[in-house]
Design a protein around this nucleic acid. Sequence first.
DNA 1: GATGAATGAGTTTTCATTCAT
DNA 2: GATGAATGAAAACTCATTCAT
Lengths: 191, 191, 191, 191
Amino acid sequence: MRPGRQGIIDAARREFAEQGYAGASVRDIAHRAGVSMSALYYWYPGKQDLLGAILEEDLEHYNQACRDAVAAAGDRAADQLRALVGATVRYRVDHPVRSSVVLSEGRSLRSDQQAAYERRLAEAGDRFRDVIRRGLAAGEFTTAQPDDARRFILAACNDIGQWYDPAGAIGVGALADRYATLALTLVGAVA
Amino acid sequence: MRPGRQGIIDAARREFAEQGYAGASVRDIAHRAGVSMSALYYWYPGKQDLLGAILEEDLEHYNQACRDAVAAAGDRAADQLRALVGATVRYRVDHPVRSSVVLSEGRSLRSDQQAAYERRLAEAGDRFRDVIRRGLAAGEFTTAQPDDARRFILAACNDIGQWYDPAGAIGVGALADRYATLALTLVGAVA
Amino acid sequence: MRPGRQGIIDAARREFAEQGYAGASVRDIAHRAGVSMSALYYWYPGKQDLLGAILEEDLEHYNQACRDAVAAAGDRAADQLRALVGATVRYRVDHPVRSSVVLSEGRSLRSDQQAAYERRLAEAGDRFRDVIRRGLAAGEFTTAQPDDARRFILAACNDIGQWYDPAGAIGVGALADRYATLALTLVGAVA
Amino acid sequence: MRPGRQGIIDAARREFAEQGYAGASVRDIAHRAGVSMSALYYWYPGKQDLLGAILEEDLEHYNQACRDAVAAAGDRAADQLRALVGATVRYRVDHPVRSSVVLSEGRSLRSDQQAAYERRLAEAGDRFRDVIRRGLAAGEFTTAQPDDARRFILAACNDIGQWYDPAGAIGVGALADRYATLALTLVGAVA
DNA sequence: GATGAATGAGTTTTCATTCAT
DNA sequence: GATGAATGAAAACTCATTCAT
């Protein structure tokens, strides 16, 4: 696990995050992973497959976090939305490198890898959509613009990596709470 | 405008938008512009300078649109925020290529170009910050989270290019209105 | 030799003849031509195109020699067959490098280049077929195996490069005469 | 025969026939043979040795077929020549892969393997030379060009793999007869 | 007896850029 | 004002081969 495959994936993720997919070089990835280029090619058939493996792993990782958060949140839509926003904020803060690659390098995937990527992305979006729909149906939310609200919430959460300073004064927990509050405002949560 | 320069910039912008800065090739840019590579290098010193010129032109272009919108909006903060959101939504929809490059290729700038870029970016952010601050001071807005609200609004507006379909059913005007409404919700606009 | 295109083609032909297409390296071709690899790629899009250009040039060159020989040979089929065998023998002897590449590297062509190559090869074969058919029709030839005779003749002529020693005692003219004699024997030429 | 060795040789032969020696990769050979690369290297010291073993085995195989054919042919040179042509035609038709490698990859041998290869090739040529010489001595053959005739015959037989279609209408037996007839024509066989 | 893992030199090709004219 | 020709470095990837186990 660790020595070959995982070390290479980790190095590739960092390199893709810093340079972008096109700007990253396989040579630098191998060097960063502490293996020869040939060893890298022994474990992965090519640069594109590295990206595919990373996006698969990280999106799945994030989706799992969301599933868990919703499952632990109880029945009220407001609590589920709080949980979802919290999980997303936390993921962006705790995994900035993973988040950066997932959110900006999807377009660099080979065409045959796109479908799986977009399915996983849609799963994430659908979870928000479902919670908001259920909140509306239950009378917990009152917004007339559920789609726009969802887009605001997701865009805001995904944008965190662009400005958040892990060494700064804002804690993750507080940030999650604040973002959840605004999310509930957007969906017009009652009481 | 000028025959050589502008055609090259336009081609470069499209190429950067489609491939990313690192993934774009000077050869392809020249070909797309219909000029020889030598001609391109006659007008611009290099690839980085193309990016610099594009980001300068487009961010300035966007900032001017915002300035004009605010200036035309009258004195109430709510109207100014509506105008600002409207200008941003419109820019993202009407200039998807410009928007895409400005929003995703800033990190590829040479270090000596970064300062100007970030100053212009900050100008855009500050305009939202100022309007929200003035709205709070005037009692028009009531939010306890002005910074978070600003981030939600900007992130949502900037994200439009990721999903908006110009051939789809949603018109720009309607979209601008809807986004402005949510923006006002976020800042807790009164009555 | 000559700058640019021709020098590169000449070097590539020699290299392909000596090492085979797969065994030849673009680096060695460029070195042999006295140009940098980048210069080579300026003139030709890739290794395969070098092979394509060579086979086209050389097969056409040979076909032209055959056309001229037949045209100059007068009306009797026997004379035309003599001319055709003479032209082929001469080509194999005078252009051993061209002959070697044309006869052994056709299978290394890209699929889109194969058709043109095979058309030119067929043209060469058809010229022999036509002459033999006409000789039979005119009563000059009597063989019951015109197809086999044609294959014997062509195979023998094409094989010359495998054993002929240009520094040896056999002159081209004598060889051409001897091969023509056997060719006429094979088709059962009368008197 | 032996489990590892023979499967590897068979795979290598096919690969060499399809791609040429230089174009074939040890990886593909191992994969085709269904063994690991390490296993391949356990049985054979390297790629060159595979080629050496193949050429040795196949040329010897062919030579043995010729020896047997001549031995079974009786004393008349014409019958022996018929037998020799028949054996060669049959070998080219029945073993197209072996034939292809033997006839086109000899030049890729390591220098220390060349001698043995050329000795075996010469043995094949000498058998034809001897039969023709004996036919002339016995008055069975009358050609004035025994060397050229031999070259025609061998070249024609060796060329069969280039055009013969095993799924086509021509049977091996018929083809052998026809080629033998032309061979006898070339040597000027009497009666 | 056999392999999974790795290597370093090599491959073809593309890159941004320069220069003589 | 502009170009055709060229460059050296680097790109992604493959090669035949080796070695510790």
